[in-house]
């Protein structure tokens, strides 16, 4: 799953490449940019200044991804409707 996910991300043209505010990025956007940054760093084609900037950006993206991964709580609710047809949420116990 993780592999095909990385591949699908690379082909996504709508994916922002640089300078997007990390906090508003989706997990896959952040992960895709992180992959790019790591590849750039590994190729060693950046000068020192750019490399350090890329590293800082990468760290920010990685922390964003990690935060997203930590938001891992199963929270199950079901929709119910009152007489007027208004939806509300209530816990579901799938007994």
């Amino acid at each position: 799953m993780a592999k095909s996910l990385a591949e699908s991300l690379k082909s996504d043209p709508a994916r922002p490449t640089t300078d997007a505010a990390v906090a508003s990025m989706s997990f896959e956007e952040a992960l895709a940019e992180l992959e790019l940054i790591v590849q750039k760093l590994e190729r060693g084609q950046l000068d020192l200044d750019a490399a350090i900037k890329a590293y800082e950006r990468g760290t920010e993206l990685r922390q964003h991804c990690t935060t997203k991964l930590k938001e891992a709580e199963l929270r199950v609710e079901k929709l119910s409707f009152d007489a007027a047809g208004n939806a509300r949420l209530q816990p579901l116990d799938p007994a």
């Binding site: 799953m1 993780a2 990385a6 992960l31 590994e42 350090i52 990468g58 991804c65 991964l69």
Partner: peptide
């Protein structure tokens, strides 16, 4: 959904590659 554990592992690998990448750049410099 993906497997969270795998993503954690992938992120960890990215972290190491990121550090090694910067290290290589600095060594070269």
């Amino acid at each position: 959904v993906p497997v969270r554990r795998e993503l954690m592992l992938q992120l960890d690998q990215l972290r190491m590659r990121q550090q090694a990448g910067l290290g290589r750049t600095i060594d070269e410099m």
